[in-house]
Design a protein around this nucleic acid. Structure first.
Length: 596
RNA sequence: GGUCCCGUAGCUCAACUGGAUAGAGCAUCUGCCUUCUAAGCCGACGGUUUUGGGUUCGAGUCCCAACGGGACUACCA
């Protein structure tokens, strides 16, 4: 909440005491921006106060209004509509606030490291197949949230846990040994993750054939599925891996390196980086001791067969397995170990944010409760940044059915479409080929990121590859385009018009005062987005501000304006919009072009 | 069966966390380039917020029920 609203709350609280002899805590006074169809800038909702004033809503509002206008010289006049007290704030106040904002370095951004240290985990891929559309939502969300938290003053550590071990990797390895003929990314010209993914598919194909054959020779389906020779091979390989067999380890390392190189390429294209990587092969054994300690402390209980469970029925959850009877780890065991390890790796870590799909909500509820039972201080502050599935028109993505939308392909298509459109509109005349390529990527990737981030994370969303992503309307490129226009004005005005904010009423019109108010809401938006871990708040703010700017831009020329004060006022509007939009889009991981 | 999400214009999404006449974009129709970039702007069309109750000055928002969609409920990861 901004200072003006706080002051109004405070004043209303005092006014209630003075006028009605009633005690109203300031924070209970509802202050909001006045709807545009009414006269005024700020609205106080007086309905809740009528019980104390013992007067009608209109009468109450009248009394409070005159008291306030009398006391606070920022208020010029007021109007009462039903139970709403609409206050008009002086143009001078808005102009001064705008001046402050423009003179503030990085307006809306809190000082670095002024708040607690947080860790954001996102992406967290398997190493047996390439990244797809679902990963894109995850990665953009996680990255954006970390940028937002940083802007809100937190120290942020971006991590991913790489799921680099297990039966799925062994499947790719076995298939490569059978069918690969020594193929490498270099010899095949394939991206490493694509190459490994290709053998994962090859495994599945061979496996299905073997199952079918076995069934044809009279075996039951279950038996056939369980005893397919190629699956047995994969299992054997997993055992060898766990024993540290040298040959297996070498192949495993080689193929994983291919995948990492492939992922790295994709992350670079996205503009995404990590501060620390965790590998499951290093962490999957962590956690067992923690669980055993928990048994000692009485936090968990061990059954007769030796398996260890946590009883969360008091928290409305079930009993949950933490360690198998043979003493081996389950997913939860590993996550417990990894979480604790991270607290050790980063002393002073306040909390961890896990960007993982909503199908794992139950898992994380359990994890946080378990951490609490283990005595981790602040475990309840951890947050599962849960997001809905990205659905395709034909239903869910299924890698086996070939309905996955590949991340690299999609990004490339986006850039290509942006290029075709730019060409058609004659936007890229005079640019060399590498400048063109960069511009097309900026626009195409911007459209994709914005599309995936403008929706609230909790909602599942529809993605139609043919129709979904547009470059006009409520889109990333729309925002980029208007940013470029603002930038263009500022560049052309440089040296001609001073960046100076005039205070007199005659310099401003109503639409400009509205724009100033929207621009001044920026810091609150950053805080709100950080508090709820929700980039869509930033995305929607950027759009709303851009839309308002674009409307205004249409009939408020800057360079051609002849009245100096008005010209300066318009310059200031362009400047603050340009800055806020750029900062907001940066938090979404979206670059801004200089022309388009 | 139990738990959790979701249901708003033909489609994709908003609605400042209980406030005023529910807003944008797409699609459809229609105007505006001799004007700082038309990937833009103006206008029109489009709604019983799934349904039925309840809470109160006031409900898309909170509570209950029903209907519809999704997820979870593995000694898988």
């Amino acid at each position: 909440m901004n200072q003006l609203d706080l002051d109004i709350q405070d004043a209303i609280s005092k006014a209630c005491l003075a006028c009605f002899d009633a005690v109203v805590p300031a924070e209970q006074v509802q202050v909001q921006r006045t709807r545009k169809e009414f006269d005024g800038d700020r609205t106080v909702v007086v309905f809740p106060l009528t019980r104390l004033s013992k007067k009608s809503p209109e009468e109450t509002a009248q009394l409070l209004g005159s008291w306030l206008v009398d006391q606070d010289d920022r208020m010029t006049h007021f109007q009462v509509v039903k139970g709403f007290l609409n206050l008009s704030v002086s143009t001078q106040y808005w102009a001064e606030s705008l001046e402050n904002a423009i003179n503030t370095n990085a307006f809306g951004i809190a000082p670095a490291n002024s708040k607690s240290k947080v860790m954001v985990e996102f992406s967290s891929p398997n190493t047996n197949k390439p990244l797809h559309l679902g990963h894109l939502r995850n990665i953009f969300l996680g990255f954006s949230v970390s940028q937002i938290l940083k802007a809100a003053g937190h120290e942020v550590i971006k991590v991913q846990i790489i799921n680099d071990r297990g039966i799925h990797i062994c499947k790719s390895m076995v298939a490569w040994m059978h069918f690969g003929e020594g193929e490498t990314p270099q010899t095949s010209g394939l991206k490493g993750d694509k190459l490994v993914g290709k053998y994962y598919v090859a495994f599945d194909k061979a496996y299905k054939e073997q199952v079918k054959q076995a069934q044809n020779s009279g075996m039951s389906e279950k038996e056939a599925k369980d005893s397919a020779p190629i699956l047995t091979e994969a299992r054997t390989m997993l055992q060898k891996w766990e024993q540290g067999d040298a040959e297996t380890m070498t192949l495993w390392k080689t193929m994983n390196q291919w995948v990492y190189a492939g992922f790295e390429h994709t992350y670079t294209e996205m503009g995404v980086t990590f501060d620390q990587l965790y590998y499951e092969s290093n962490t999957y054994l962590l956690g067992r001791d923690e669980v055993l300690n928990g048994v000692q402390n009485g936090a968990f209980n061990q059954r007769e067969d030796g398996s260890i469970w946590v009883d969360l029925s008091d928290d409305g959850l079930d009993e949950k397995l933490l360690l198998r009877k043979d003493g081996t780890a389950v997913y939860m065991t590993q996550d417990i170990g990894t979480a604790i390890q991270r607290y050790k790796d980063f002393p002073g870590l306040d909390r961890q944010i896990y960007t993982v799909g909503n199908e794992q909500e139950y898992h994380f509820k359990v994890l946080f409760k378990v951490l609490k039972k283990l005595g981790i201080e602040g475990a309840e502050r951890n947050f599962h940044l849960s997001y809905g599935m990205v659905e395709l028109p034909e239903g869910k993505m299924k890698s086996r059915e070939g309905t996955v939308v590949d991340a690299d392909d999609l990004m490339q298509e986006m850039a290509q479409t942006a290029g075709e459109m730019a060409e058609e509109l004659g936007k890229t005349d005079g640019l060399d080929s590498s400048e063109k390529e960069n511009l097309h990527k900026t626009i195409g990737y911007g459209a994709l990121k914005y599309f995936l981030l403008k929706v609230s994370p909790t909602k599942s969303m529809m993605f139609d590859p043919k129709a979904s992503i547009d470059f006009i309307g409520n889109t990333g490129p729309f925002i980029q385009f208007n940013y470029v226009r603002a930038l263009s004005v500022l560049n052309k005005a440089e040296g001609l018009i001073a960046l100076r904010v005039p205070k007199e009423d005659s310099a401003w019109d109503e639409s400009e005062i509205q724009l100033i108010q929207s621009a001044l809401e920026w810091p609150e938006m950053v805080q709100a987005a950080a508090k709820t871990y929700d980039p869509s708040i930033v995305a929607n703010y950027c759009y709303d501000l851009t839309k308002a700017y674009s409307r205004w831009y249409q009939d408020h020329p800057v360079l051609k304006e002849t009245v100096q004060a008005k010209q300066e006022a318009r310059m200031a509007i362009c400047a603050i919009c340009e800055r806020n939009i750029k900062a907001g889009m940066a938090m979404l991981g979206i670059e801004m072009p200089h022309r388009m």
